[in-house]
Design a protein around this nucleic acid. Structure first.
Lengths: 153, 153
DNA sequence: TCAGCTTAGTTGACACGTCATCAAAGCCCG
DNA sequence: CGGGCTTTGATGACGTGTCAACTAAGCTGA
C-alpha cells in the first residue's frame, strides 16, 4: 500500500483554494446584498428570472428544473415556499394530468424587476468589474470547459 | 426615473453564467463523491483538514473560524454535529474560562487521512486536470483578486 | 474594586438542498 | 383492452448555514 497520490502543486493549490474561497465569500456577499435589497435569495432570483424569460412567463415544472439544473425535488420544495410568499402560482396542465405549470404572479414580476438592477450592480462590483476583458474571456472558456465535462456524467 | 443599468454584455454574461453553473455542478459533484467515499461533507472535510494542519491538531474555536472564514455560529453548530459523530473533541481552555479548544480525535485523524486521496483525485478529475498550467495560473490570479476585494469590506 | 464594554461561544428559529420514497398519471406493447 | 414500465411531482427526514438573541467570562479605567 504505497502512497501514489498526486497532491496539488503550488500553482494548483493556489487555484483551488482561490476557487473555494471566492465561491464562499462571493456567494455569501451576493446573497446578503440581494436579501437586504429585495428579500430574495439567490435561488429565488434564479427561479424568477428564468420564469420571466419563459414565453408567457409560464413553464412546466420539470422543464424549469432542467433549465436551472436543479432536481425536481428541490424545485418542488422551493416553489412551495415561493408560492406561500405569493411570488409564483401553480396551475394544472391542460393535457397532462400529472403536470404542474408554474407562472409568475404580478408580485413576482414586480419583485424581479425591482431586484434585477441592484443584483447586476452587485455582481459587477464584486466580480465582473474587477476583471479585464481578457480575464473574463479566459474565465468564460475555463468555466465552460469544466461545466461541459460535468455535464457528460 | 430613467433606466441607466449597465446590464452584462455577452462576454460578461458568459463568464457569469459559467461561474454560476460551474459552482453549482462542481460543488454538487464533489460533495457527492466525498460523501459516498468517506461519509464526509465538504464542510467536514475543511474542518478536519484545517484541524490536522494545526500545531498539535488542536485549535481555539474562534481561530479555526477565522481560518475557515466561517462565522463562529456556523462553526459552533457544525462542531456540535461533528462531535456527536466522534470526529472532534471540545476541551476547556486552560487560561480563558470562555474558551473552547477543539482537537482531532483518533477517528477524525483516520477519517481525514483516508478521505484525502480520493478527494484530491476528485478535485483533479473535475477541475484541476481539465485546465492548462496557463489557465490555472490565470485563474489563481483572478480568484485572488476577487477574494482580496471581498476581504476589504 | 467594580461598572460597563468587549469577546467567546451557544442556542433557537428558520430557509435551504439532498436523498429516499411514494402516488398518480401517462405510455407501450402483447 | 390492460398490465407493467416510465414520468411527474410531492413529501418527510435530515444535515446545513444564517441571523438574532443570549450567557458568561475577560478587560479597562475611574
Amino acid at each position: 500500500m504505497t502512497e501514489d497520490v498526486r497532491w496539488l502543486d503550488p500553482v494548483e493549490a493556489r487555484a483551488w483554494l482561490g476557487y473555494r474561497r471566492m465561491s464562499l465569500l462571493l456567494g455569501r456577499r451576493l446573497a446578503r446584498d440581494l436579501a437586504q435589497a429585495s428579500g430574495l435569495s439567490e435561488a429565488d432570483y434564479d427561479v424568477l428570472s428564468n420564469l420571466s424569460e419563459a414565453p408567457g412567463a409560464s413553464i412546466r415544472l420539470t422543464e424549469l428544473a432542467v433549465h436551472l439544473r436543479w432536481s425536481t425535488s428541490r424545485l418542488s420544495h422551493h416553489l412551495t415556499r415561493m408560492r406561500q410568499r405569493g411570488l409564483v402560482a401553480r396551475h394544472e396542465h391542460p393535457s397532462d394530468g400529472r403536470g404542474a405549470v408554474i407562472t409568475l404572479t404580478a408580485e413576482g414580476q414586480r419583485t424581479i424587476q425591482e431586484a434585477a438592477p441592484g443584483h447586476v450592480a452587485s455582481v459587477r462590483e464584486h466580480f465582473i468589474d474587477l476583471l479585464t476583458p481578457e480575464q473574463l474571456k479566459a474565465f468564460g472558456d475555463l468555466s465552460w470547459t469544466v461545466v461541459e465535462r460535468l455535464n457528460e456524467t
